[in-house]
Amino acid sequence: MSTQSTAANPSVSDEVMIQMVGVNKWYGQFHVLKDIDLTVNTGERIVVCGPSGSGKSTMIRCINRLEEHQKGKIVVDGIELTHDLKHIEKIRREVGMVFQHFNLFPHLTVLENLTLSPIWVKKVPKREAEEVAMHFLERVKIPEQAAKYPGQLSGGQQQRVAIARSLCMNPKVMLFDEPTSALDPEMIKEVLDVMIGLAESGMTMICVTHEMGFARTVANRVIFMDRGEIIEQNEPEEFFNNPTSERTRLFLSQILHH
């Protein structure tokens, strides 16, 4: 898997999609994010790793305002994230997110999960929304589950539905918050395959994950975070073979040789 690292990588543009400048966040006294500077170009695929509690999830959750940052600047596709609700709405429309625990709506069928937001937010006719939904269900290879409820699906299937649900909004960026951490080992691959396919199509992605094989295959850049700071970032090959910081080396030795 590690040898074909560049084979799946489409080109990255110079256009900036996400810019974070000096972003800080506190939970009471606890300093979760410390001066985060991060620029993500259109088409870039970024993997964020680090020990638990290092602020990885909090960082990406700040991008679509599921968490509020207290200092610094975040710009997504030219829209600055402020207290302006219109801006927050616009950004959420362009940023898709996949969660560790899927968070599908249990009272709606798979198809209804996929069409809810297109119908209400994008004001798309139901039939059209359903066509788009079926297209993405085929892309994640479970069109036959459209009429079922989330509770009737396996974890891997649920996560693929969650990815399809985000894609139905036609986002410019996809955020993944540990998408495979809650899955049984045999289901991780089916979800990663979908994510690899998405990367190949040129989607801008930021992915918090410990799947280092995935990082080597699709990432342009791997970011290591610890205690709220970005410690190191590099291309996957360099990152895994020649980590510069002692903390990165320690972390990698812990997750790669267990």
Partner: peptide
């Protein structure tokens, strides 16, 4: 209703009142 439901609905761009009406209240 788990907070994840609200987060997922907001992340999909649903306004808070729709989130309440379409996702939270039915559950």
């Amino acid at each position: 209703v788990s907070h994840g439901q609200t987060e997922a609905a907001l992340a999909l761009g649903l306004k808070p009142r729709w989130c309440m009406r379409l996702v939270i209240l039915p559950q």
